[in-house]
Simulated scan of single mutants.
Amino acid sequence: MASIDIPLPEALTKFMEVPKCIDLSLPKPNLPQLRLPTGGTIKGIADITKGIPSDCSMNASLMRQIAPIMASMECLLKLLKFVGVLIDTFKELSSGNVTAIPGGLAKIAEAGKEVLPCIGMAIGLTIPPFIKDLILLIVKMLKCALQALKSVIKVLDGLELEISTAAQNGNDLLVAQLECAKENAMNAADGALQAIDPIATVLQLAAPFFELVPGAPAIELPSLASDGSIDGLKTLVETLEEVVLVLEGIAEALPV
Rank of each mutant, 00 (worst) to 15 (best):
N187H: 08
V115E: 06
A185M: 00
K143D: 13
A207R: 10
K132E: 04
I131N: 12
N171C: 03
L221S: 09
Q194H: 04
I108S: 06
V139D: 01
C144Y: 12
D197C: 11
A111T: 04
A176S: 08
I196V: 14
L212C: 04
I108P: 05
L203G: 01
I219C: 03
E220T: 08
C118M: 06
K143S: 01
M186E: 11
F209P: 00
I153V: 14
S164Y: 02
A106V: 00
V152Q: 15
A167F: 06
K150R: 10
P214Y: 10
L156W: 09
L221E: 08
A109P: 08
V152M: 13
P198R: 06
F130A: 13
C118A: 10
L224T: 01
F210S: 04
V202T: 02
M121I: 15
Q177D: 02
K113Q: 12
L178E: 07
I119L: 14
T126C: 09
A207E: 15
D197G: 02
I119C: 15
V155R: 14
L224D: 07
E220C: 03
L174W: 01
K107I: 03
N187W: 07
E160H: 07
L178P: 06
L146D: 05
A166S: 10
K140T: 09
P208Y: 04
N169W: 09
C180N: 04
V202L: 13
L173Q: 14
L136Q: 10
L203M: 09
V202N: 05
A200W: 03
T126G: 00
L125Q: 15
A167K: 14
L137G: 08
A188S: 05
L161T: 14
P217L: 06
A181E: 04
A218S: 07
P217W: 00
I131T: 15
E183M: 10
I138K: 07
Q168C: 01
G170V: 07
L105D: 05
A176P: 06
Q204T: 13
L159H: 12
G112S: 08
L146H: 01
A176H: 05
E160G: 11
L137V: 07
I138H: 02
G112N: 10
M121R: 15
E114G: 11
A195Q: 03
L193Q: 10
P222M: 10
L212V: 02
P217C: 07
N169Q: 12
I108D: 00
L203Y: 06
A218D: 10
I163Y: 01
K140P: 05
M141H: 00
P214I: 09
K154S: 15
P129N: 11
I219E: 01
L156Y: 11
I219F: 06
Q147R: 12
V139F: 03
I196E: 15
L142S: 02
E162N: 05
D157M: 14
A188P: 03
I123N: 15
A200K: 15
A176D: 11
A216D: 08
S151P: 04
P128A: 11
K154Y: 15
I199R: 09
V213I: 01
V152N: 14
M121P: 12
E183V: 12
G170N: 04
S164F: 03
E110Q: 05
A225G: 12
G112Y: 11
A176M: 07
C144I: 13
D190T: 13
K113D: 07
L193N: 10
L146Q: 02
S223R: 01
I108G: 04
L224W: 00
I138T: 00
C118G: 11
T201C: 06
L212F: 09
I138P: 09
A176G: 00
L142K: 00
A192W: 05
V152T: 15
